[in-house]
């Protein structure tokens, strides 16, 4: 049987997302690199108690629509629906707007696990790589980050033990895909998308274009298809 990871709709792509799922959301925080179609599809599902892992806490559709004319949801939508009850994040707040996460946090509706951005990236990479965790100097001695994590000294430098993150689902925004799930990205839209692809039981990529197998230059493929379970067009 030929390998074919292409699914017909974003609704079909996220149909098995379940209560309590850990969901990795690619992108940096800008709408242009957010898996916005997949996020919107999940926001319509009757699922709750989601743990979300993302760089940004989101801005909200009003900001993207009002300022940039892009009427799409970012990760904020999972707070709008109150589906997210725990968020592992490096930039939960932003200077533009008091976002829904911030409001919900003050109301005690959501647990926030603060994670330095590089630590977040490396914890996710470790999840994909089959590692149990990483050792990073970042955050040693910073109470809000160190908390009760073990500290290990190697060659006179101290490192925090930070656990790997592996999700149930990873939502990825890419530029082009083929039916094997090979992905290429565009410019800085690679960001956390390429980092998170493969760091979950099920990786789902929404893409601008699907091309024939063999069209993507093997030297240019950033995410090998084996990391990707489903590919869906942004439509």
């Amino acid at each position: 049987m030929a390998i074919n990871k292409i699914v017909a709709s974003v609704e079909e792509a996220v149909a098995d997302v379940h209560d309590g799922a850990v969901i990795l959301v690619g992108g940096f925080g800008n709408i242009w690199n957010a898996p916005s179609y997949l996020l919107t599809a999940i926001s319509k599902l009757p699922v709750k108690n989601l743990t979300v892992v993302s760089n940004s806490g989101g801005f909200g559709i009003e900001i993207w629509g009002g300022v940039f004319g892009v009427h799409e949801h970012d990760v904020e939508v999972l707070h709008r629906t109150k589906q997210c009850t725990k968020h592992i994040v490096s930039a939960p707040t932003n200077p533009l707007v008091v976002n829904t996460l911030e409001t919900r946090y003050r109301a005690g509706e959501v647990e926030v696990e603060m994670c330095a951005q590089g630590t977040l990236a490396e914890r996710v990479r470790a999840g994909r790589a089959g590692l149990g965790g990483i050792l990073t100097p970042t955050g040693v001695g910073i109470p809000e980050i160190q908390r009760d994590k073990p500290v290990i000294e190697i060659d006179d430098r101290k490192y925090l033990v930070e656990k790997a993150i592996k999700g149930d689902f990873a939502l990825i925004r890419a530029h082009k895909a083929d039916r094997w799930g090979n992905l290429v990205y565009k410019g800085t839209s690679r960001t956390f998308n390429a980092t998170m692809a493969g760091a979950a039981r099920v990786t789902i990529a929404e893409v601008d274009e699907i091309v024939e197998l063999g069209e993507l230059d093997p030297e240019a493929i950033v995410t090998p298809g084996i990391y990707v379970n489903r590919v869906v067009l942004r439509q």
């Binding site: 242009w32 690199n33 990236a121 410019g187 800085t188 690679r190 960001t191 390429a194 980092t195």
Partner: peptide
């Protein structure tokens, strides 16, 4: 909008430029 600085502003490409995923980007930093 596919070539942004950290503040989300579009920037000009330049000869010699390279693109990194987030884990690699923080290898540069750390």
């Amino acid at each position: 909008y596919d070539l942004l600085n950290a503040g989300g502003q579009p920037v000009e490409p330049r000869p010699g430029m390279s693109i990194l995923d987030h884990a690699e980007s923080f290898c540069v930093i750390r």
